[in-house]
Design a protein around this nucleic acid. Structure first.
Length: 353
DNA sequence: AACGCGTGGCT
DNA sequence: TAGCCAAGCGT
């Protein structure tokens, strides 16, 4: 039956039709060059790192913040790592910030010039297959095959790829490669991503507005939303813990730095207990950073990470002015202005309520 | 090759 | 509401 449906629309997707659509509808984004202008590799790189698994809307303010503070890759390389991490706070996936800084240092060491090939870019920290291909195509006009989540969705629909992700990845790449035009590889990559972001969306794709409705096999079958095929996801485990909001008489709050690696690596936090599958008050309280009369605040902080959900009970205490900060901790007079990851921002907000 | 790694917006 | 999802990378 699929055979009959496929025979009904044997057209090959035309890259020219996509580019024509792109020329009319291309989105104006802060990191994009104007039509005909060449792209600044630094801006392309910075935006691509920030856009990894992150929405355009979320990236916007951070991109401007970074560009304002670090107008070029050398300025970024010369900044203290603390400054970079603080500016990144709230954007998530903090290993990206560390790799961003490491990459800037490597590029600065080569005179501030990025490698101009996909292979060269792939050597740099934080730059994987997608990002290397994207920078090569967009900034250096290399005919690389750029495959991100948008492209995966567009291609699996165009060709009704039945293979489940991630096994479909090599198939998708092979189907994408022959579509890349020699003259405008960068525009083609951005057009594919724009198409995926605005027309060929995960839910309710706007097929009637799509430059490729005609050759789309999934559309012909009326099952476009079912691609890409994916296995059902397992349950997200829950974890529980305590956070200790300690204020000194003068209002300073106790903070701590997390380990460099792992979850929220290197970020500032409110001291807390381990995060475990169940909440036990006594063992949690024994992990308090100092002795105090703890007052449990009403409510809790709930936060969802990519691979588990977290519920934190918040305990507050006020200690004497002369209290010294425990090991690995310090006092902050202005927690509200601190660069905290979002889950810790929620703890502060609950305590301040 | 799976898994760990954040966050906010949308349905 | 509670899951789903976004221009992935490193290990």
């Amino acid at each position: 039956m699929a055979l009959a449906a496929r025979k009904a629309q044997p057209k090959r997707p035309d890259p020219g039709a996509l580019l024509a659509w792109y020329d009319r509808h291309r989105r104006r984004l802060p990191w994009r060059a104007e039509p005909g202008q060449s792209s600044d590799p630094y801006r392309v790189w910075l935006s691509e790192i920030m856009l990894q698994q992150t929405t355009v809307a979320a990236v916007g303010p951070y991109f401007h913040k970074f560009l304002g503070r670090f107008p070029n890759v050398t300025a970024l390389a010369d900044a203290p790592s603390d400054t970079v991490m603080r500016l990144w706070a709230g954007l998530g996936y903090y290993a990206r910030a560390r790799n961003l800084h490491a990459c800037a240092k490597e590029v600065a060491a080569r005179g501030g010039t990025f490698p101009d090939t996909e292979a060269g870019l792939l050597e740099l920290p934080g730059i994987g297959p997608y990002t290397a291909a994207a920078i090569a195509a967009i900034a250096f006009n290399e005919k690389s095959t750029v495959v991100d989540g948008n492209v995966e969705r567009v291609i699996t629909r165009l060709y009704a790829v039945e293979e489940e992700m991630p096994r479909a990845k090599p198939i998708i790449r092979a189907l994408t490669e022959p579509l890349v035009p020699s003259d405008r590889p960068g525009d083609f990559a951005q057009a594919m991503m724009d198409l995926g972001a605005t027309i060929c969306t995960p839910k309710s794709p706007a097929c009637s507005l799509c430059p490729w409705t005609d050759p789309c096999e999934a559309r012909a079958l009326g099952i476009q939303e079912s691609f890409p095929r994916k296995a059902a996801k397992g349950e997200r485990p829950a974890r529980f813990g305590a956070a200790f909001f300690v204020t000194r008489k003068d209002g300073a709050v106790l903070l701590r730095r997390r380990a460099e690696k792992g979850l929220l690596g290197g970020m500032t936090e409110i001291p807390g207990s381990d995060w475990l599958p169940k909440f036990d008050k006594q063992p949690a309280l024994e992990q308090a950073p100092l002795k105090a009369e703890w007052r449990k605040l009403t409510g809790s902080v709930n936060h969802v990470f990519s691979h588990f959900s977290l519920e934190l009970q918040v305990f507050a205490a006020e200690v004497a002015q002369k209290t010294r900060a425990p090991e690995n901790c310090w006092w902050s007079q202005e927690v509200d202005a601190e660069a905290l990851p979002s889950v810790m921002r929620k703890v502060v907000d609950l305590a301040r309520r």
